[in-house]
């Protein structure tokens, strides 16, 4: 009755609210944790100590190099047709402006196609992208590529409508990628409200001028660590189920949702199994990734270091789309493995979270899944996730202890049962 014991302990028993309370203490103490920052170093030290205090096995830090981008002071002001402050967040990896800033006329477009069709107008201007929010995966292209696409047509900077499904004048940051051979221009996100304002002004033929100041600096890569702890398997200790979330965050808000919740329900999974005196046949390994927000930097180095043992990797699990009320699990693997995972999910009937969906997702586990290892990701009611994502709104206030209890129960039952089955998942 292991599954029922886990559910009872996590949702109704003495461990209820523990992952929430641990997360609150952590983010209230450390704050946000951007790659290369002192805060991230403190966070890793904190977790290294906390996991040891929790009597987990093989607590260790695995060294990696991560980007170190620093935002600096930044501001934007619409100068014409009237003065208005624009709330901005520079994008990770962006170059800064000259100290005096950049003052230029604006061209507003709603798509890359429109930019191409109006390329003659864009030279020497600031490109404002007012792309509609379709989905995160589709719309985030403007944040990732907007600067380089604007630079190709001679723009001096780009301001991109935040990739947000709801806005209260809140800018959302994120990583952006410069293309090789294309000039690097400053790039930041503006609010949905200001993007729409400038789009309306522009549609009326009104000339818009914006002053942009960004003090961003790219430092040399910094030392960082993936944080690891285990419950060592009793029968096949070399075979591993990974449960994971990422410890780094953006430099705004608290990183409580992205991905504090995922990291702390993953820790909770090991704590619950330990509390119940369970010892699965295989090793359950907690990995708290570093440098995820810059493109899975810590996890890619982890993969390169450990892929020699890929045949022993049973299942890789990552929670990185929030820890709202869970609705099931996403899974990627062969049909034979899916049948088994469907059976495992039935064990969660007592809390009515039994659905198995397709297409596990998670930057940090993607390297393993692409190489054929079965992968699973927590699916929750993430309808509000992109309200807060990468913004000052990503705070503990988003989190809910009851939801986290349920997330931890789902996460732990799946990790434990798969780790304890007599055979590894087919692959």
């Amino acid at each position: 009755d292991a599954a029922k014991s886990i559910i009872d302990l996590a949702v109704y028993g003495s461990a209820q609210n523990r992952s929430y309370e641990r997360l609150a203490l952590f983010v209230d103490t450390i704050g946000n944790r951007v790659s290369g920052s002192d805060n991230l170093k403190k966070a890793i030290k904190y977790m290294y100590s906390a996991l040891q205090d929790d009597k987990l096995q093989n607590v260790s830090l695995e060294s990696v190099k991560v980007p170190h981008w620093e935002r600096g002071k930044e501001s934007a002001m619409m100068l014409q047709p009237r003065q208005k402050n624009l709330a901005i967040l520079g994008l990770g990896g962006s170059v800064g402006t000259p100290p005096e800033g950049i003052s230029a006329e604006v061209i507003v477009v709603s798509s890359f196609a429109e930019l191409q069709s109006r390329e003659q107008e864009a030279k020497g201007k600031i490109v404002v992208y007012n792309q509609p929010y379709v989905s995160y995966g589709e719309t985030v292209q403007y944040r990732s590529r907007g600067a380089s696409e604007a630079a190709k047509v001679g723009a001096v900077a780009s301001l991109i409508r935040s990739v947000a499904s709801l806005s209260i004048n809140s800018p959302h940051t994120g990583w952006q990628d410069y293309q090789n051979g294309v000039p690097k221009i400053p790039t930041a996100c503006i609010t949905v409200e200001d993007a729409e304002l400038m789009a309306r002004l522009s549609s009326r033929g009104v000339k818009i001028v914006v002053q942009l100041n960004m003090g961003a600096v790219q430092h040399p890569d910094a030392d960082s660590f993936n944080t690891v702890a285990e419950i060592v398997g009793s029968k096949y200790p070399e075979q591993v189920v990974i449960v994971s979330g990422h410890l780094d965050s953006w430099d705004v808000g608290q990183g409580a949702m992205d991905d504090g919740g995922g990291a702390f329900i993953s820790w909770e999974a090991l704590s619950l199994i330990r509390d119940l005196g369970l010892r699965p046949k295989r090793t359950i390994r907690l990995v708290l990734w570093t440098g995820e927000e810059e493109g899975g930097v810590g996890s890619s180095q982890y993969y390169e270091r450990h892929k020699v043992n890929i045949r022993n990797m049973d299942l890789v699990m990552e929670s990185d789309i929030g820890t709202f009320m869970p609705v099931g699990m996403q899974f990627s693997g062969k049909p034979e493995a899916r049948v088994i995972m469907s059976e495992v999910m039935k064990l969660l009937a007592p809390i009515n979270i039994t659905k198995l969906y397709d297409n596990a997702e998670g930057t940090d586990i993607s390297f393993w899944m692409q190489a054929g290892v079965p992968g699973a990701s927590l699916l929750d009611d993430a309808s509000r996730y992109f309200w807060f994502h990468h913004s000052e709104g990503d705070t503990m206030t988003v989190q809910n202890p009851i939801w986290m209890n349920h997330c931890a129960a789902v996460w732990t039952v799946v990790a434990y049962v798969v780790a304890d089955l007599e055979e590894m998942l087919p692959r």
Partner: peptide, 23 residues
Amino acid sequence: TDSQHGVSSRKLERIKEEVAGYK
């Protein structure tokens, strides 16, 4: 062999029973 899943029906039943044992 289960034609849909490519796994031995006997093996599948055995694994289902094994998983059910965790209830």
